[in-house]
Design a protein around this nucleic acid. Structure first.
Length: 289
DNA sequence: TGATATGTTATCTT
DNA sequence: CAAGATAACATATC
């Protein structure tokens, strides 16, 4: 489910809550969801939690291995303190409305892994479709993996020159190139749709047909929507929940995504939905040329 | 019942 | 070989 802003939201929250905590137990309820020997985690103390592309990395004190997590389409990481109860969550969220469907007991039928900490708090990895995973790899493997990753939209290495080179080198539809995780990290379907609307570019156009000016507009739009997504704590669409089991707010600011038939915020045209690369694609025929 | 679903990658086709 | 298209992963919801 989560795109970069959603993963970033989760990673930041985990970094805050898990730092210094000691793992005392790991239960794997679905073997496909955990790669490696979970026993190895016992007794480890968490140094920090970070994000690279759409992966979450957990680093430990005095250990040369890391835990890498990918939520794919439907993964969730929900942390609950000792003696968690509904009243506790409601107290924690100032003015927010906890989504009722998530105020429930865990583990449930979609829980794949549970990590227990020495302070009796617990982290639940839920994943309906079981595409996501947690895996233990060595620090060296992790560094190697990072080497092979393209720059994230929010990285400073993601320059306009780089973006231009990528787009000019492909004849595919511009939206598919923007979403290509081999070339650009972190631009998923929701944000790709919205960035193209903001830049007023038809998502179906061949990437190499964009002018330098259009590329620049798209580059800026992409950074802008991703930052907006982070600011609003991600988009709650389908299964996205933060570590408290609560949703984000970006969905209230969608420009095109899931807005078929509604008015374009630029030109009052009607948002249209088409299919591109097997994915739902939303755009405004009025202003996206 | 059938279409659809946020991500990634393996495998097919051109 | 390379670029691009498509299927696959597992499950729920509309």
């Amino acid at each position: 489910m989560p795109e970069l802003p959603e993963v970033e939201t989760i990673a930041r929250q985990l970094d805050r809550t898990l730092r210094g905590k000691k793992i005392v137990g790991v239960e794997v309820l679905r073997t496909k969801s955990f790669v490696g020997k979970e026993k190895e985690l016992e007794g480890r103390k968490i140094k920090r939690v970070g994000r690279e592309a759409k992966m979450i990395v957990v680093e430990f004190f005095s250990w040369d291995k890391v835990l890498v997590i990918h939520l794919k389409m439907t993964g969730q990481l929900v942390w609950r303190p000792k003696n968690w109860d509904i009243a506790h969550i409601k107290r924690e969220v100032a003015g927010g409305h906890p989504s009722e469907d998530w105020i429930k007991e865990l583990p449930d039928k979609h829980t794949r892994v549970v990590i227990d900490f020495s302070d009796k708090s617990r982290l639940f990895f839920n994943d309906l479709r079981v595409f996501g995973w947690m895996k233990i790899i060595t620090r060296d493997q992790w560094l190697e993996l990072r080497e092979g990753l393209p720059p994230d939209v929010v990285d400073k290495e993601f320059s306009l020159e780089y973006f231009m080179r990528i787009l000019r080198g492909s004849g595919r539809a511009v939206k598919l190139v923007v979403m290509d995780s081999q070339k650009i990290g972190g631009a998923g379907n929701i944000y790709a749709n919205d960035a193209l609307n903001l830049a007023k570019i038809d998502p179906r156009r061949s990437a190499k047909s964009l002018s330098a000016e259009e590329i620049k507009k798209l580059y800026e739009a992409l950074k802008k929507v991703i930052k907006l997504g982070i600011k609003y704590g991600g988009a709650t669409y389908s299964s996205f929940r933060d570590t408290r089991g609560l949703g984000g707010k970006y969905q209230d600011h969608f420009l095109t995504y899931k807005r078929e038939g509604e008015k374009c915020k630029n030109c009052r045209g009607k948002i249209k939905k088409v299919k591109l690369g097997g994915r739902g694609t939303y755009y405004c025929p009025g202003c996206q040329i």
